[in-house]
């Protein structure tokens, strides 16, 4: 099960992701994120505080989101990764292409507002 709860802070979309992202539900995750993002958003923060699992199916969805944001000079930030989730991002080299912050507040603070 995966749940995505979003809120907009000015032109920044914050998405709290809860549960697990695996091959059986990644389409739901992709859909929830895609429909929440508006063209005027200049950044998206995915908060993984309550994410307990992710496989490469989820990484693929995150990469596609990052690519489509980058195409229009917007960016994707991540925050609050557990040790397990961070390990998956590090092994995959995703920590080299996506900024990872300890908390949502710190992710927000990193954006010029």
């Amino acid at each position: 099960m995966v749940n995505v709860t979003t809120e907009r802070i000015d032109d920044i979309l914050s998405a709290d992701v809860e549960g697990r992202i695996d091959g059986s539900n990644v389409v739901q995750f992709e859909e929830a994120v895609r429909t929440a993002i508006e063209d005027s958003d200049r950044a998206v923060i995915m908060n993984f505080e309550k994410l307990v699992y992710i496989s490469s199916a989820g990484l693929r969805a995150i990469l596609l989101t990052a690519k489509s944001l980058q195409n229009r000079d917007a960016k994707l930030l991540l925050c609050s990764l557990s040790d397990r989730i961070r390990e998956v991002f590090e092994i995959s080299g995703f920590d080299k292409i996506l900024p990872i912050h300890p908390s949502k507040d710190e992710a927000l603070a990193s954006l010029d507002r």
Partner: peptide
Amino acid sequence: EADTSSAIEDRSIGGLGVHL
């Protein structure tokens, strides 16, 4: 072979599962 180093625009996802 998994691509773990390209920039976002060039990054491909293939092979990541086996790499993990």
